[in-house]
Computed example of a mutant assay.
Amino acid sequence: MISRGIQSNKVNGTFYPTSFILVGIPGLEGAYKWVGAIVCLCYVLALLGNMILVTVISASSGLHKPMFIFLSMLASNDALLSTSIAPQMLLVFWFQKRYIHFESCILQMFFLYSFTSFESGLLFGMSFDRYFAICQPLRYGSIMTNTIIVKLVIFLLLRAVTLFSPCIIFIRRFPAFRSNIVNHSYCEHMTIVKLAAADIRISSALGVAEAFMILGVDLLFILVSYCAIFHAVFSLPSKDARLKTFNTCIPHMCVFLSFHGLAFFTCLSHRYGGKRIPPFVHIILADTYLLVPPMLNPIIYGVKTKLIREKVWKALHKCQSPHVK
């Protein structure tokens, strides 16, 4: 009897799957309802917060500046990133619908890593914007033009799509798989690659190369930008100005360090962690870096930005006030 999701032409115990089975988080099966509740909460808060952010920035002409344009794109990307995995995870945790078609799995993987790459690039773009705003304020207007922003965004989009495409091509070209059971809560690249009944060294190397070419390069430039920013801050004569800049930059640093740190851990632990890291720890951290930043970014970037905070409170006040004829 052929199990669901497996083509009938088995050879030497291998097969080519028509679908994969997402396990979720091995070892926490008894807590799936609570895990699903946490995922749902993160997803709803991410959608709500990022939609408010995009709406407020789009509707306010005073916020049509480089910093807020980057923030609007980050919010849109965060909403899409959450949507690429959260609904599928809820199907697994709440409804035990674990099957995902092979093509759907590949598509989810492609969108997931494209949005992740674009997220990393946008964080770099925002640090680039802050560097010129703080360190070279007189040249800021001539450097951060709409043309430069459009070119940077196009580059980041092309990079996100093209660099991960070879990984997708190699997965599709695997001749056979040993299993179609995915010990993860979404279609994670190396988890799928390890199921292949083929030489996976090239795919593994491509995954590491992609992580360092995108996340590593972005993180390096972000760190350099913030080092220059802090160097400029220390030279400010006013203590209040230094404190204000630190209060703005420190939360931003926490965002990109947590995002990039967990992303690197997820990438490297698959290859070098071996059996030293329990599977559920790896999966929880992998889920965290995809679900938590999109939920926290609207709070950190939005609530702590005075102009956005004022616009949001003004909009809420209008909604609560009675209509006056």
Rank of each mutant, 00 (worst) to 15 (best):
L152V: 10
F170M: 14
Q96R: 13
T116E: 04
A160R: 04
D199V: 09
L206P: 06
A198S: 15
N183P: 05
F118K: 02
T162K: 05
S179E: 11
I169N: 09
V208M: 13
I171T: 10
R98G: 05
C167Y: 04
F118E: 02
I171F: 04
I149V: 14
T147H: 08
A176K: 05
C135F: 05
L123R: 01
F115I: 01
A196D: 10
N183I: 03
M126R: 03
I149A: 03
A198H: 12
I192W: 01
R159S: 12
T116N: 08
E210G: 02
M144T: 01
L163W: 10
L157Y: 02
L156F: 12
P166T: 11
F170W: 11
L152E: 09
V161Y: 09
A196P: 09
T191L: 04
Q108D: 06
I149C: 04
V150A: 10
H189C: 06
V208W: 02
E210D: 14
F115P: 04
A209H: 06
D129Q: 08
L157Q: 01
Y131G: 02
L163I: 15
D199M: 07
C187W: 03
E210Q: 10
C105E: 02
A160C: 10
P166F: 09
S165K: 12
I143W: 03
